[in-house]
């Protein structure tokens, strides 16, 4: 019972934080709120019996993403205007609200048939998961089933994941690393005026 209460409270906190993120215009505050959002989700993963996911989310989601976003803010802030202020949005909110409302309604309609939360007899629990829970320890000798699947049964998938992260790292370095000619828009404009 206490599980369910903590679960409901944390999910409500998450919903409130997300609404606050949408409504705020100060980018620094938004990034900080996103850090809180990640931390709350790490807590929720612990409540839902997924400690490995919680560790990763706390370290990677709340830690690394927040640092990356803060670094981006520092590099892209506007020196003339209020440094971290988002510009007032030009278009009306009605069309996006309409699209989002319809999509959400369809998705909620879809939840009517989903097995209820925590159902031990749902198809997700009775199919292949049982095999790993019963055989992971004798076959791999690792008591943590998540680690056993990640590193042993699906080791090549994890290698593929490393390839993805490596590619992203190379792409980031190509985009913003190294020495680049300082070509700002102002100089470009001036160059074009000179040509004409």
């Amino acid at each position: 019972m206490i599980d369910i209460i903590i679960n409901i409270t944390l999910l409500a906190f998450l919903a409130i934080t997300s609404v606050a993120i949408v409504r705020m215009t100060n980018l620094f505050a938004i990034v900080m709120l996103f850090g809180i959002f990640s931390l709350l989700s790490a807590g929720l993963f612990v409540v839902m019996d997924a400690p490995d996911v919680a560790f990763t989310e706390a370290a990677v989601g709340a830690g690394i993403s927040t640092v990356l976003m803060l670094a981006t803010l520092a590099l892209t802030r506007n020196r003339q205007k209020n440094p971290y202020k988002e510009a007032p949005h030009a278009h009306r909110p009605w069309l996006p609200l309409f699209v989002v409302g319809i999509t959400g309604a369809v998705l909620v309609y879809g939840t009517w048939d989903i097995p209820r939360f925590g159902d031990p007899n749902s198809p997700a629990q009775t199919h292949v998961a049982r095999y790993y829970l019963e055989n992971a320890l004798p076959e791999t000798g690792v008591p943590n089933v998540v680690t056993a699947v990640l590193a042993s049964y699906r080791g090549f998938d994890t290698l593929g994941e490393v390839a993805v992260v490596f590619t992203a790292g190379v792409a980031v370095l190509l985009l913003i690393g190294g020495r680049r000619p300082k070509q700002t828009l102002k100089q470009k404009d001036e160059g074009e005026q000179d040509e004409t």
Binding site: N7, L11, V22, H91, P96, L97, V100, R116, F117
Partner: peptide, 24 residues
């Protein structure tokens, strides 16, 4: 209680989608 998780998930999903569509 059985569907609450999924509803909040959908709500968060829609908040994210709305932010992507409507904010510049």
């Amino acid at each position: 209680i059985g569907q609450y998780n999924y509803w909040v998930v959908i709500f968060l999903m829609m908040v994210g989608l709305y932010t992507v569509i409507s904010r510049g």
